[in-house]
Design a protein around this nucleic acid. Structure first.
Lengths: 213, 213
DNA sequence: CGCTGGTATTTCATTAAATGAAATCACTTT
DNA sequence: AAAGTGATTTCATTTAATGAAATACCAGCG
């Protein structure tokens, strides 16, 4: 699995030298070099003129496939209309996220049209612990036919950013969550209430689209 | 590297059983099972209730990173305005592709607004040999300061689909190519000529954006 | 209900690849 | 020229991978 650790670090890091990759993964440089050479020979990585490794075309092909077939294709397709509606009605950026072990990863977004808006969290991971998103993804479906309750948090990841979250259910439990993110000073009072209603509504509709009962 | 072959097949395949993954990679099922379990334990794959393996959240996180940092982030960002212009001016679907060994992979698109339009080739691989795209990606920078010549082909991959292609240069040679794809009956005569000019122009402008001289 | 076929899982002995330190090389900076 | 950093090669050792065979499970069919 060393080879995947290295691949992970290089793809996540953008452009990474041998010693940096070895240090980041705790692998001796001679071992890391061998693995990086194998990954490069198969096209998963490329090595540029400066000797730095980056993602290669074979990995890119798989990255595209990951969103075109399989569960994330279905989830992102089912979620897209709801994300658009969420961004339109709440006038804040709306995100779709999934659970990745002890973290949550934002995998899709429709950004708010406002000049002051939350941006750039697709691909970002946040901990399950201590975040509204984490709570939502780790929650149980305990509402017995009633709409799920929304989750709120301010400042968990960034100061003055409020998150309003609702989980999405599929055939095998919680498959993702919607999160609307915006400045805390805007998301208060009645705007916060209406945002919560919209997020819950989006989650319920997307859950039904994925798993009709 | 067996582990990456398996990962490749599962991600590309969408939802794949143990025996299918083993057969597709030529790996004995007991060995394949072990690898699939390791991939699942790290979150790169998931296994559903039916026992089929699909892409998992750790892989999705990397897939997103592949387009956010590193060479493909730069390439797709630099190419986006040109793809949009190409689709607008030619009224056909425009694609960006890169070379992956003996194949070419389409990695981004702006689709034509026409009802009859070419769709759905992002993530698809075509051979270098026998295609206009392949010729373009394999070509040398032999025009010595003059604009590159466009490449044409009809029916190489699908009957009655014409491709008009031009390579994009970066600091280390050819880094990608633009391809406009549309019905052969539409892309003839003066429309074909103007499409070729537009593709070459897009490639030249994107090359300059990536590697100013 | 029993049988068959296909798929998945476990076990265990064998093999092959991975490993990693040390020596060496290359390049940049002082 | 020397020093420091990063990369590469070599080689002996170790560890993980391997894969066949046995077993278990499940769905479909007669």
């Amino acid at each position: 699995m060393r080879v995947l650790s290295l691949l992970d670090r290089v793809v996540a890091g953008g452009a990474v030298g041998l010693t940096e990759a070895a240090d980041a993964t705790g692998i001796p440089v001679s071992t890391a070099l061998r693995h990086l050479r194998v990954l490069t020979s198969h096209g998963y990585l490329v090595r540029n003129d400066l000797g730095r490794y980056s993602v290669g075309p074979s990995f890119v092909r798989l990255a595209l496939a990951a969103f075109q077939s399989g569960p994330y294709a279905r989830l992102t397709a089912a979620a897209q209309p709801a994300l658009q509606r969420l961004a339109d009605t709440t006038e804040e950026s709306a995100y779709l996220a999934v659970r990745d072990g002890s973290e949550a990863v934002y995998i899709a977004t429709v950004e708010s049209r406002r000049a002051i808006r939350h941006v750039g969290w697709v691909g970002k991971s946040v901990p399950i612990e201590g975040t509204a998103l984490g709570e939502a993804l780790a929650s149980e479906m305990t509402n017995h036919g009633r709409p799920p309750a929304p989750f709120f948090n301010t400042g968990a990841i960034e100061p003055d950013v409020t998150a309003v979250v609702a989980p999405i259910h599929g055939s095998e439990g919680i498959v993702g969550a919607f999160s609307v993110l915006g400045p805390a000073e805007r998301l208060t009072g009645e705007r916060l209430d209406r945002t919560a209603e919209a997020v819950v509504d989006a989650a319920v509709k997307t859950s039904l689209a994925l798993f009709p009962r």
